[in-house]
Design a binder for these strands. Structure first.
Lengths: 217, 217
DNA sequence: CATAATAGTGCTCATTTGTTTACTGCTAAA
DNA sequence: TTTAGCAGTAAACAAATGAGCACTATTATG
């Protein structure tokens, strides 16, 4: 975490940013001084030194206008990405490989890639992910082998929804049905049989399928 | 339109861009000269003057490192969007409403919105668009009413591909088949009959379906 | 009260940096 | 052959610029 700035230091930091934005190059000590009515370059320089020490700026010594901004922390890199995602209307959603019991779903090692999804389909806070479908048990619901299903774990699931559940260490896509305190996972393919779950406690629902993406060829 | 640059000028322009990117401030004449082994600052200065005259740079006289880039034209604003699209791996694809004969497909008035598509699926040069599917004639191909099909007009179409064609002033999604100099558009639903096109000349193929996106709820 | 951190003045000095002039050499077009 | 555009050297100069010192003043903290 970066250190707290004084009001004056904050003002100056903002000015440098703006100046660079407008002019394409950073200001000199005297240009900063002029703006804030600091007549001595030394006064300005000490502010800059403080900003360097506190982790905001880099200064190349003996170079004119040698001011640059310290690389953003990873946190604010992420903030930046979110901002771009908002502006351009998309979200990056990780594509998961196998989903094994025990390991956190979104663990680094499970992520095989990512796909971009239009933000009109989901909130950025939803923490969605994508799974590649194996098998043909859902063909009558228009979900084919190789399709990517977009999954959200933060939506209510009601009867008839398509969900992803963890069955014997493997993720499965099925239609969800809760009746008489029993959960049934219904395939949408007459060649398969429904799966009945009696022990509701042990049932591991991963999330609800909110979208499907298929790519041909 | 900006004027043509010489090789040398191009090199130098690129270097300035990179330098500014890396250091946060533009280079001095001597820093440019060092890079290109131009021992005289005057040699460098004349390159910069040329870049100013040709509309690429602005130079603040008597200011150190006073180099900035001329404001982008609208054309290069688009280039900028493309760059962001490249960096973040997506494309914006327009969603078309009705597709009527006569009117250019991508005419402003046809565009109902846009959707973001992962760039691993298409090249940016492909000029794709999306269409909302009406009817259920392709359910056995996993294409349902309301799905968005992503269409490219720049791909070769072979038998078995799913295409969008213009039939009687309306766009239709069907499987394509060319046999015995006759085109047949095959629905993927036993309740519908194939459409046979005898007059190949009059056949208006809009494009090939390269992807399908469905959103649930 | 002493101490440290912050903020600033006024000044000098050494470098850095852009500007300019005079001159050389190459190539393509008129 | 002349002219124009491009590319570069060498040198000198003035202005722009960062660095540093000595000194003052305010404010918060223990």
């Amino acid at each position: 975490m970066k250190k707290q700035l004084t009001d004056r230091q904050e003002e100056i930091l903002v000015f440098i940013k703006q100046f660079r934005e407008e002019n394409g190059y950073p200001p000199t000590l005297r240009e900063i001084g002029k703006k804030f009515e600091i007549s001595s370059t030394f006064g300005v320089k000490r502010h800059l030194d403080a900003l360097v020490k506190k982790g905001y700026l880099n200064i190349e010594s003996n170079a004119s206008r040698g001011i640059s901004f310290q690389r953003d922390t990873e946190e604010s890199q992420e903030t930046k990405l979110f901002k771009i995602e908002d502006d351009y209307g998309f979200h990056k959603v990780p594509i998961l490989g196998r989903v094994a019991a025990g390991v956190p779903i979104l663990a680094e090692e499970n992520i095989e890639g990512s796909i971009v999804v239009d933000s009109s389909f989901m909130k950025k806070s939803e923490n969605c992910f994508a799974l590649k479908v194996k098998g043909d048990s859902m063909i009558n619901a228009g979900i084919f082998e190789g399709d990517l299903v977009i999954v959200s774990s933060k939506r209510d699931v009601v009867n008839g929804d398509i969900v992803v559940a963890l069955l014997e260490d493997d993720a499965t896509v099925k239609t969800y049905e809760l009746k008489n305190k029993m959960i049934r996972l219904l395939p949408q393919n007459p060649n398969y049989n429904p799966i009945e779950i009696i022990d509701i406690e042990s049932f591991k629902l991963i999330g609800k399928v909110i979208g499907i993406v298929r790519w041909l060829n």
